[in-house]
Amino acid sequence: MSDGLINILPTLNDGSIAGGPLYVKLQRLIENAVLDGLLKPGDALPPERELAAIADISRVTVRKAVQGLVSDGLLIQRHGSGTFVAPRSARVEQSLTHLTSFTEDMARRGMVVRSTWLDRGIYVPSPEEMVTLGLTSGERVSRISRLRVANDTPMAIERAALSVHVLPNPELVTLSLYAVLAASGNRPVRAIQRISAAILKENDAKLLEVPVGSASLNIERISYLDSGKVIEFTRSIYRADAYEFVAELKLGDSSEISGAVL
Rank of each mutant, 00 (worst) to 15 (best):
W117V: 15
K229P: 02
M106A: 15
G42W: 01
V66C: 08
G19N: 10
L162E: 03
G252M: 07
V34C: 11
I8T: 05
S71I: 02
E50F: 02
T61S: 12
V66Q: 06
S58C: 05
I8Q: 01
M111N: 06
R239E: 10
T136K: 01
G68C: 04
S89A: 11
E48Q: 07
V124L: 12
V131Y: 11
R194S: 11
A160M: 13
I8S: 01
S58F: 03
N13Y: 00
R28G: 14
S227T: 14
P127T: 00
L39F: 10
A65W: 05
K250T: 09
D56C: 08
Q94A: 09
R28F: 04
Q193V: 13
D241H: 01
S184L: 04
I157Y: 04
R140H: 13
G185S: 03
L181R: 05
S81E: 12
D36V: 03
S255E: 13
M111S: 11
D14V: 09
T103P: 05
V70G: 10
N203D: 15
L74R: 02
N7G: 08
I57T: 05
R140F: 13
L38T: 04
E220M: 07
I57S: 03
V124H: 09
R59I: 06
P188D: 04
H79V: 06
I54D: 03
K206A: 15
I6K: 10
V230E: 01
D253I: 08
S115K: 07
A182T: 01
A182H: 08
L249P: 06
G259N: 03
L45I: 05
